[in-house]
Design a protein around this nucleic acid. Structure first.
Lengths: 247, 247
DNA sequence: GTCTATACCACGATAGAC
DNA sequence: GTCTATCGTGGTATAGAC
């Protein structure tokens, strides 16, 4: 019973209290967000004393980090492991973009499908955390992702040698943003797009639609910044800029 | 309340108190987020009494909605107006995707550039609101966006007649997500991608990079769900799945 | 109508008893 | 390790002043 629920070889149970707090906190954070979740609600759900959180984790913020870390660490390790495998299999040749993107998406997909674990809703919590202005969250996430993203950026750079490094940085940024945001999307937001809630709740379907969309953007030829931006300038002429038009 | 309810042309100041509260609240919400901003901080910054917020707006939540509405209403009206103009100019022919996307982006760009108004940081507040689980925010935003999105969806459908309606819904969802998320992105997040903070602070540059990226995804040929998803399936075989199919 | 002072309960955090 | 008591601060409601 005390085998804990962690995905990665929980060599020590860490104490049943800690695990009960983590489980309760994860569920409540997912449902209401960080700020809107009270320690009193968490400790009540976990059937522990109010002071237990501060004793075991130090603060509400550190509890939040522990909740994220418990799922995030294994997921990002799996991403890097998949990328390693891809590069090993390919020998000297660079893996295709499709495969690299799959290595980025697959672990998120596995997490979304795993109902034993927090499951799909955890990704929504994660996506929300990305947009949070709280300094402690931003520091934590950038530290968590830094090395993983650097590895994938290098892999994409080899797969897309014609793409300038800066443009690749932008596109990777957009990809991570779209991935996180789409996973974090609320039902209300999905209804705006007139999507079937049954489908949009299925993160597997969602990722399988998102991946080709992002892949097209990633492989797109370098824009001369006149295609859309030009349209913008034309629509409202400001300052000095050339029309470059097909009008 | 005062006579000026609607967001159009505030013919009357609505009371200096209300405006001072709105300005102070907007600045603090942008900096710290909704939950982390206290009414006491807002009323102190606005030099009004604590109870003034509840008197003029009813609650902290309604104040937040008022803050969003003040910028959002004009922006979305401008979007629809640009789309109207586009369709009028084209006569019977459907406007190109580039133009439609520009009509969607331009008003956000104008808002980002306008320093008199809240400016760029407002878009970050807005992007964050999208990912917020609070029911009142979700209801508010879906109501605000419903009609605007429906108009753009119809326009895109005419520009992309080969694209099934459902696929278009997905792609529009991704576009709105990427737009909001990218605008809401924190500095820490951008640093992950090794981007120059000076550039990423410039929302104009950002949108001009994002638009071509999203345009490529929007115009991408229908995926047979074997390109990336296939990579996913191969990596973790699942139940059998049929081929192309869109509707 | 508009604004102020103030009271109320829930929150996060912590010191100290057990 | 765990619990109780308590402190400062949060959103909210209202009575009464202008």
């Amino acid at each position: 019973m005390n085998g804990t629920v962690i995905g990665l070889v929980p060599d020590r149970p860490a104490s049943a209290t800690q695990d009960r707090i983590l489980d309760a906190a994860e569920a409540l954070f997912m449902e209401h967000g960080f700020e809107a979740t009270s320690l009193r609600a968490i400790t009540a759900a976990a059937s522990v004393n109010l002071a237990a959180v501060n004793y075991h984790f130090g603060s509400k913020e550190e509890l939040f980090e522990a909740v994220l870390r418990r799922r995030l660490d294994p997921m990002n390790q799996r991403r890097v492991a998949l990328l390693d495998q891809l590069e090993r299999e390919g020998g000297g040749t660079a893996p295709a973009c499709e495969r690299i993107l799959a290595a980025l998406f697959l672990p998120a997909l596995e997490l979304a499908r795993d109902r034993r674990v927090g499951g799909a809703n955890f990704l929504r919590l994660l996506g929300r955390a990305y947009a949070d202005p709280a300094p402690f969250i931003r520091k934590f996430l950038s530290a968590q992702y830094a090395t993983m993203i650097a590895r994938f950026k290098a892999a994409f750079a080899r797969a897309l040698p014609h793409l300038p490094a800066k443009e690749l940085s932008w596109r990777l940024h957009f990809i991570m943003g779209a991935l996180s945001y789409t996973l974090a999307g609320t039902d209300a937001l999905k209804l705006i797009a007139e999507l079937n809630p049954r489908e949009t709740t299925n993160d597997a379907v969602l990722l399988e639609r998102l991946a080709p969309f992002l892949l097209a953007g990633l492989k797109a030829p370098l824009p001369d910044l006149d295609e859309v931006a030009g349209g913008i300038e034309r629509a409202r002429p400001r300052a000095s800029r050339r029309g470059a038009g097909s009008d």
